[in-house]
């Protein structure tokens, strides 16, 4: 038995002229949760689809539970939640889950699972008439019903309301507690921070950072405050020590990063007093994963 649930080494995948994945390495130890974090088009789905055996990489090596991801013997051991779900357009939710359950030796009880996912009321509703969130939850049920050792979830909370999102988080935590390995993709920072043992940030088909959420966010301190947008920061910069950088990343939200000590806080509040503005929500803390993410992947919107 191999140590890792998933082992990806220098994997490349091209679609015509575009390189979707340009040499990704990642490793998911058994029983852990790994979040693949990245902006749209970063190569998250392509990476997961190669791990799930839907796509063959152009080069590099991929091992899932110690086996070739395309291997038929792997199928019963792995649960997959593809992006956007998957079912016959006319099939009822309960029928679809029963069909997937029939493919497993010792499945979870389908009616119980439908109930857990809040789908009991929609059990007889045809798939194409389920809401996006219901389709997403049915897809999750299909991924879990066979009691897999390893689950791939591509954007498991996309399109879910806050309650359903919380439920998915609880499920992932329960899976982890019961020894199931989970590889999920997300572009939500709080999701990665809350769920994952390890986070791999990818952008442009490459890994740009990886580590535990704590390790990724400890470097450097930050002081944040909100006040009137568009203030001139020249005077404040001059008043701060050279190690500090001040910026207004989004209108009205100001950020001082660097060595934040009591003098820095004092300088900021004094400057606000000079400007005649009140600094609201002023707080000092470590960087969030979102800060790390934006720093690494840039702030411009992707198509």
């Amino acid at each position: 038995m191999s140590e890792s649930a998933v082992e990806v080494a220098d994997v490349v995948k091209r679609f015509g002229p575009t390189t979707a994945v340009a040499g990704v390495d990642l490793s998911l130890p058994r029983g852990q949760v790994l979040a693949l974090l990245g902006p749209n088009g970063a190569g998250k789905t392509t990476t997961v689809e190669m791990c799930a055996g839907f796509l063959r990489p152009d080069s590099g090596s991929l091992r899932v539970l110690g086996m070739d991801p395309m291997s038929a013997a792997l199928r019963p051991r792995v649960g997959v939640m593809p992006q956007g779900g998957g079912a016959y357009p006319g099939v009822r939710a309960a029928e679809m889950l029963r069909l997937v359950a029939a493919c497993a030796r010792d499945p979870l009880d389908p009616p119980w699972l439908l109930d857990v996912l809040g789908l009991s009321g929609a059990a007889r509703t045809p798939y194409k008439r389920l809401s996006g969130g219901q389709q997403q939850r049915l897809s999750l049920a299909c991924a879990l019903v066979g009691r897999p050792e390893l689950v791939f979830m591509d954007e498991p909370t996309a399109g879910l309301d806050p309650q359903a999102r919380r439920l998915v988080w609880d499920l992932v935590s329960a899976l982890r507690a019961d020894g199931v390995s989970v590889l999920l993709t997300t572009h939500l920072m709080d999701e990665a921070e809350a769920l994952a043992d390890r986070v791999v940030i990818i952008d442009g088909g490459r890994v740009v950072a990886e580590g535990t959420p704590a390790a990724l966010t400890t470097e450097g301190q930050m002081l944040r405050f909100r006040t009137r947008p568009g203030l001139d920061l020249t005077l404040l910069s001059a008043a701060l020590p050279e190690s500090c950088v001040v910026a207004e990343p989004s209108p009205g939200a100001y950020l001082v990063s660097g060595e934040v000590d009591p003098q820095v806080v004092s300088a900021v509040t004094a400057w606000c007093a000079q400007q005649g503005v009140l600094a609201e929500e002023l707080r000092v803390g470590r960087r969030s994963l979102e800060d790390v993410f934006l720093e690494l992947t840039g702030r411009e919107l992707r198509s």
Partner: peptide, 17 residues
């Protein structure tokens, strides 16, 4: 929602053909 420990303990295998 909380789940009793062991709810999702892996027990993989293929169904009967």
């Amino acid at each position: 929602m909380t789940f009793p420990s062991g709810t999702f303990t892996p027990a993989p295998g293929a169904g009967r053909p």
